[in-house]
Computed example of a mutant assay.
Amino acid sequence: MRLMEPYLDKGRTVTTDNYFTSLSLANRLLACNTALLGTINKIRREIPPPAKNTKGREEFSTHVYTSGSAILTAYAPKKNKAVCILSTMHKQVTISEGRKRKPNTITDYNSMKCGVDIMDQKVRGYTVRAGTRRWPVAVFYNMLDLAAMNAHVLYTTCTRSTESRRDFLHALAEELRRRFLQEKTMAKKQRPPPAPGKTTQCQVQIHCNRNHSSERCAVCAKYTCRKCRKDGPWICSNC
């Protein structure tokens, strides 16, 4: 709703995938004169039980359910399989005369889904996503993927470059890594030494447990305690 604020109360239609679509969101958008059209996951509790049951469903069959101004279309592209579309854009569902007998909700969604499914398809090709059970980490991975995708679109549009997204992402990662290492090196050089006679926390912590020291390693410039030094008094155990 925060992202849609500039477009509310203008009679527009927003297309969503099953991650966002819900009956409550559709009603909130409809109250702001904005329609919603999108696929909805069958595990949602607002989905009626007959729409969830796909066993024995005929191929290319359509079932329609209504709740106020919202219309739920359950279309079976294959036998024993159904795709659910929630819409507040349509007043009624009509079936095409083709072989697949697609309803107009499915046809309209396919024509407007390019900004949803194609983006997900491109991001899935080159992603930083890794297995995790923490949803904030998953959201962060998705933010990185979308930022890199948008950066490539802006780069090719502004420079008229034909560089592939794979080469662009590789160059972007190298540039970010180089900048991070430069900032890290500058931070080490600008780090003030401890005052004479005072100690600071050991930054190596291999053989100690939060011991303290006032001396630095000659190689990595980390503060190291007496237990974590080796090869003389100026080199830590890591180096």
Rank of each mutant, 00 (worst) to 15 (best):
T185Y: 09
I118R: 11
M4C: 15
A70H: 07
A82T: 09
N142P: 05
N41L: 04
I85A: 00
P49S: 06
R12F: 02
G125Y: 11
L8H: 01
I106C: 06
E174K: 12
P192T: 05
L25I: 00
P77K: 00
Y126K: 04
M143R: 08
M89Q: 15
R133K: 15
G38R: 00
P6Q: 01
R28D: 12
V219F: 13
T159R: 13
R57I: 08
R101I: 00
E58A: 15
P194L: 09
Y109W: 01
V204F: 08
S87D: 06
D145V: 01
D120C: 03
R57W: 05
C239Q: 08
R2F: 09
C202T: 02
R129A: 14
E46C: 02
P48G: 03
V153L: 13
C228T: 06
Y65A: 10
H90S: 07
P136H: 07
V123Y: 05
I118N: 13
W234V: 11
A195Y: 10
W234G: 07
C202A: 04
N33L: 08
Q121D: 09
V64I: 12
N238F: 12
G115K: 03
M112N: 15
Q205W: 09
T88H: 01
R177I: 08
I95C: 01
Y141Q: 07
K52H: 03
Q201R: 14
E215A: 12
P136T: 05
K198L: 13
T88Q: 02
C84P: 06
V116G: 04
G232N: 03
I40E: 00
M143Q: 09
K10L: 01
I206V: 14
L36F: 03
W135M: 10
T157A: 13
G38Y: 02
A82G: 05
T39P: 01
T16A: 13
T73R: 01
V137P: 07
V139G: 08
Q203V: 04
A187T: 06
T200W: 08
K91Y: 10
T15H: 01
D231F: 11
P233I: 07
N238G: 07
K100W: 02
S214A: 15
Y65R: 09
R160F: 09
T73H: 04
I235C: 08
H170I: 13
N33Y: 13
L37K: 02
R166H: 13
P233M: 07
L8S: 00
T34K: 01
N211K: 14
